[in-house]
Nucleic acid binder design. Structure first.
Lengths: 199, 199
DNA sequence: GTCTATATTGCGATAGAC
DNA sequence: GTCTATCGCAATATAGAC
């Protein structure tokens, strides 16, 4: 567990179950399907993780660890709008790099497992709190309109970028959501968001 | 099926299974649990709906029928920004009136069942197309900045309002998301969205 | 239409050999 | 650490009595 070779059953189980859990949900996948996809024996799931739930928790921990760099937005310097753009850019890059994260994210929000309270909710609250702090800095610097509710504003920003990816299975053939357009998307969201809150 | 009394097994099964499917997902609920909650016999699910999947499809049809009034935005008169505000207001009212719809919405986007293609996707595309048409009208009337991509703009608007409700299980104790604040929320989203796209 | 009883299949977990 | 075999239970669906 501490020193993990590259191809043992443990890491194979995590890697193989990640897309299965993401696409079908926790209750939509069976342990036999997971073991087969990982090329591991069925009993290895209980051996390494204590059961299917433990494996799912390990997968979720790995997924939501990728949100932690967002918390460093607090420490870096730069004006608030620049930080919001960094947030957008990091979010897009993260979803493009890992196409499963958003499904765990929205899957747990929609049909929570015990992992929601222990893993998902703290991760989301950390990101939202960081965005709220960034907004507060902009208000102190008198860069943003004071009439706006900070929570409404940052949830709006997060909603614009996250919902864009969430809707992709439905809208992908109506609108062009290819990665080549990501830079244009970020620019447009920044324009909509920015010209709304900048004084 | 055509003339349904108030308290027959058929409508009880739909009413009782709706919150169960919404909160646990299709694979998270069993037919025994549904039958017990509806006060109906287990075999009535197959009798009326041909099985669990048929019941789920009936529930989803009922849920997504509530999206159809959005399509009438096309016909009514009024400036595009006024229509966008109507869309926001109708969306908020719909989620407050029916707390299950959003979970079916995001649940099917995240872990699609066969109903996604037949029911959910067409409903979503209808709403997005209506918003796109409304945006086009604003562009023709030279009310909106031409530099913006219509799809990016309307997905941003939909994302702001939908994500606000989706995040509620995680952010509800950090930010005030009580219904009493809905009017303020709508006003803030309209301000952020409006001052971004109005020329 | 509604019931009981059951058929069939799949599930997650584990005992015990190696 | 990995395997086979199996336990115990839950799943959905249905046959057939009333």
């Amino acid at each position: 567990m501490l020193t993990t070779p590259e191809n043992d059953s443990r890491s194979n189980l995590i890697a193989a179950s990640t897309p299965l859990f993401a696409e079908k949900g926790f209750n939509g996948v069976g342990v036999r399907e997971i073991a087969k996809a990982a090329g591991a024996n069925l009993s290895m799931i209980s051996y390494y993780f204590g059961g299917k739930e433990g494996l799912y928790a390990a997968v979720l921990n790995q997924q939501f660890d990728t949100l932690k760099p967002v918390l460093e937005l607090k420490e870096i310097d730069g004006d608030p709008m620049g930080k919001f753009e960094l947030y957008l850019r990091a979010t897009v890059a993260r979803y493009r790099m890992n196409p499963h994260l958003l499904r765990f994210y929205t899957g747990e929000l929609t049909n929570p497992t015990p992992c929601f309270e222990s893993i998902v909710k703290p991760a989301i609250l950390g990101v939202v709190q960081t965005l709220l702090d960034t907004f507060s800095m902009g208000v102190e610097q008198r860069r943003f309109r004071e009439a706006l509710n900070p929570a409404d504003a940052v949830l709006a920003l997060a909603g614009m970028i996250n919902f864009y990816f969430l809707l992709e299975p439905a809208t992908g053939e109506l609108v062009d959501q290819a990665p080549e357009r990501d830079e244009e998307l970020i620019r447009h969201i920044m324009e909509i968001f920015g010209k709304g809150i900048l004084r």
